[in-house]
Amino acid sequence: MHDISLLTLALLCLAAAMAGWIDAVVGGGGLLQLPALLVGLPHVPAAHVLGTNKAVAVVGTSAAAITYTRKAPVDVPTAIRIGVAAVAGSFGGAFFAAGINSAVLRPLIMVVLLAVLAFVLLRPTFGASPGTGPVTRNRVLAAILVAGLGIGFYDGLIGPGTGTFLVIAFAAILHMDLVTASATTKVVNTCTNLGALAMFTAQGAVLWSIAAPMALFNLAGGMLGARMALKRGSGFVRVVLVVVVVTLVCKLGYDQWVA
């Protein structure tokens, strides 16, 4: 076990459980789990914190994906194709990340998030039920390009809110209700997390002794979140979506102008 106290480990496990719940419902669990790891492991290299975070997250997203696909009408083959494109996009984003000034990116992302928030609030029926009209091959291709390559690129470049962006993209492009969009997002997230985890593992940048207990709590949170979303429906997911977007805007604003 890495040299941390039992209290610190317990708090990290609690954060992992809460992050798993948030991530399963609408995405954005990393907003809680990654900062918790950074605070709990202040002397650990950033690469090891990121690798440990991925090792924990992949367990929760996989469990949520399995829970969803058993009860929600998820097109798994399409989701996997989007996931593979997202892995490629995230590699590209990570390649360019070193040369990008995050102080420039954050305001742009905040504007996009505020636009998303306004769209969701002004369209109360958005995602309440599946959209009308056929899901054509062109729409599937658009989802692969936008949700896979585009949002995957963003995930590798900066990251926060990726799951939330995926939920909205699937609802808008593929006419999904918010529950099905969340389910599809979990399949895509599983692909991207596995790709990132493979890279971190090859680099020896995963603290498995800390990741293992956290993963169990993340697993429990992810399964509970998926079941609650399935039980309570799109209205519940919509409320959580709004809360997560507002939180993300505040977090980016704090990073930009306060921290």
Rank of each mutant, 00 (worst) to 15 (best):
A94K: 01
A94F: 01
A94H: 01
F95I: 06
F96D: 03
F96I: 13
A97N: 12
A97R: 13
A97C: 13
A97V: 10
A98G: 06
A98M: 04
A98D: 15
G99R: 06
G99N: 13
G99W: 14
G99H: 13
I100R: 00
I100P: 01
I100S: 03
N101R: 07
N101A: 12
N101F: 03
N101K: 10
S102C: 02
A103C: 01
A103L: 09
A103R: 12
V104E: 04
L105E: 13
L105F: 10
R106W: 05
R106Y: 11
P107F: 05
P107N: 11
P107S: 06
P107Y: 04
L108H: 01
I109F: 13
M110Q: 05
V111A: 14
V111F: 12
V111Q: 04
V111W: 03
V111T: 15
V111D: 11
V112T: 10
V112N: 06
V112R: 03
L113I: 09
L113P: 13
L113C: 12
L113Q: 12
L114M: 15
A115T: 06
A115D: 08
A115G: 14
V116Q: 00
V116C: 07
L117D: 05
L117V: 06
L117M: 05
L117H: 06
L117G: 09
A118D: 02
A118L: 11
A118G: 07
F119A: 13
F119R: 10
F119Q: 05
F119G: 08
F119C: 06
V120T: 04
V120H: 01
V120S: 02
V120Q: 00
L121V: 05
L121E: 02
R123V: 06
R123C: 02
R123D: 11
P124F: 06
P124Q: 09
